[in-house]
Design a protein around this nucleic acid. Sequence first.
DNA 1: GAAGATTATTACTGATCGGTAATTTTTAAT
DNA 2: ATTAAAAATTACCGATCAGTAATAATCTTC
Lengths: 84, 84
Amino acid sequence: MVISMYVDDRQPERIKTSEDLGKLVRKFRQSQKMTQMDILGLANTGNRFIVELEQGKPTLQLQKVLDVLDLLGLEVIIQKKGSL
Amino acid sequence: MVISMYVDDRQPERIKTSEDLGKLVRKFRQSQKMTQMDILGLANTGNRFIVELEQGKPTLQLQKVLDVLDLLGLEVIIQKKGSL
DNA sequence: GAAGATTATTACTGATCGGTAATTTTTAAT
DNA sequence: ATTAAAAATTACCGATCAGTAATAATCTTC
């Protein structure tokens, strides 16, 4: 029996800084009711990386970030500014 | 007098790897008739970074990448996979 | 095919990433 | 308030990032 259902229809979000990204990842992870450790299992990374990602560390390595986003079921789109 | 006009209506592109990103940056830069050096001027970075970015180096630092994209007039969107 | 512009490579180097694993702090639930 | 789970911090450290600047390679254009 389904008690409640979470439909995450959050709007696509514009990411300008690593902080923006961190906040988004955290919000999304929580909306999926996942723990950081859940993610560690999937990605080949230590706890430190996830913590730093969610904290918005600016120097994280690009591909690792892309990998985690992908694992979370998120996709990255790049477009001209102001494209509707 | 305007001889020709370039309307860059390239579709938003899905970025899964640093290579995807590199290719996109290069294509876009060229569509804007910019040289790598034009970008160096704007961003606070050396030529090496731009070369490596366009070559898809996976370990580039996140914030630097975001900065360059912003300077180029591109925006990064993150959304749930399959969002239309 | 020469010259100039653009892009790529290299060596050098200080700064820092991030895995690991242990410890501490914070949060949540009863 | 206790207690457990979750998140954050720390120290250690090998690997590597990226600026600089010089050189080399490649691409254009005449």
